[in-house]
Design a protein around this nucleic acid. Structure first.
Lengths: 223, 223
DNA sequence: CGCGTATTTGAATGAAATCAAAGGAAGTGG
DNA sequence: CCACTTCCTTTGATTTCATTCAAATACGCG
């Protein structure tokens, strides 16, 4: 049970009574009309809509995330201007906004945790920034695989990539052809093994980490 | 006076009594030891420290921003793990953490505004993401100038660029030589005029906007 | 003026985008 | 079960763009 629902028993019971459970299949979008919701399991992708119709990935919230609590009642709903889709089969608890807001008033602790969650999201967005500032496509892909795997990987190192090539290319600031070559270059270097277009096995995480972040640029300053 | 300090008169007087005014010169870093502070005027740059010693720009807070209120008392201080420097001469009000936290407890409205501020920062970080996902350096630079100019530009269209070329190149995921060429290419296209290395005049904002965001990629879907 | 720093420019190499086309896996309908 | 379509991925060839290495110019300062 997600941390954000670690509430006093009586409050919690009331909230749970008022909630409905919702399942979302992998790849399916968050239905319209969802107001306040807590993600119980699975992982979502938050995409910022772009003029060209596609979206740009800006976050990958996991279990425990609370959606929609910051939006004004009714109008914004959980998506609040973003496209949200499930990367894996997800379970959501749909909550009553009134009850939830009451809880926020009476439980400063809960609000603290939700603020911390927002700060974490901002922090994650900044990690994405660092990733996208890598000049080389292969390095950006390495960083992406690390970020995706950090919380989304089973023990055997097999990582499922829940995006099509063209979309992933768009997120990483490149084109699908170049991305395909980057995958195969990582494989040639022994960092990963391509099982199928949507799954890779991470063989050398350390190698990926190296590529992802820490290239000294203009290191001089020699004294 | 920033919105965040629009408080009931009595509370406000107490807070102001306890505050110290601090000036930061353009280019100077936020001194250590700053705990909770409100930016009264000017603009800061928030840089995420990187392994190579440089930082990566993650935000450009302006007047009204409150620093350090999310960190645990004492340890984190306002910077909270980031490098913060002044882009322009800045005025800060250094606040007493105890008083400020008391205010947070008693004024839910204030806390709401601060949360909104955090959400705005996250939103801004996502705009940076969109910007950095442009494959071409010239397009990224165009987007950067737009973002910088959105809040930081006087009426005459002359935009001061508060970064050195090498740093800006690092933020935009390229190298200083390429960045220099990108500037001159924008000038050749008539979008900007380079006054000196640290100042440009925006001649055609619309042209910059076009380059920055809205390139359809793989637009087909014909029928 | 000479020196160090920052920006710019140039030429050659390397990487990515683009254009074009070839596999490959699912789905449909015979 | 097999053509046949469709969508996606991969490969190949070419052009464009970015990086790298090297050097020139501009600026501030003692």
């Amino acid at each position: 049970m997600p941390e954000c629902l670690a509430l006093p028993a009586s409050k919690r019971a009331a909230l749970i009574d008022s909630s409905r459970l919702m399942q979302i299949a992998a790849g399916a979008p968050l239905p319209d009309g969802v107001d306040v919701a807590c993600l119980l399991s699975g992982r979502l992708a938050v995409l910022k809509p772009m003029p060209d119709g596609r979206g740009h990935i800006v976050g990958l919230p996991g279990a425990g995330a609370v959606l929609g609590w910051t939006a004004g009642a009714g109008n914004g709903a959980a998506t609040n201007g973003y496209d949200i889709t499930a990367l894996e089969p997800c379970e959501l608890a749909l909550l009553d906004r009134g009850l939830f807001c009451d809880l926020l008033q009476t439980l400063p602790d809960l609000e603290q945790r939700l603020i911390a969650q927002v700060l974490d999201e901002a922090e994650a967005a900044r990690d994405w920034l660092r990733l996208l500032a890598q000049p080389k496509v292969t390095d950006r892909l390495a960083g992406f695989l690390m970020m995706l795997g950090r919380e989304l990987m089973p023990g055997d190192g097999v990582l499922h990539i829940p995006f099509r090539r063209a979309d992933l290319a768009s997120y990483l600031g490149t084109r699908k052809e170049t991305l395909s070559r980057a995958f195969h270059q990582l494989e040639a270097e022994g960092a990963i093994r391509i099982l199928d277009p949507a799954a890779v096995q991470i063989l050398q995480p350390a190698l990926l980490e190296d590529m992802a972040g820490l290239d000294a640029e203009d290191p001089p300053a020699p004294i």
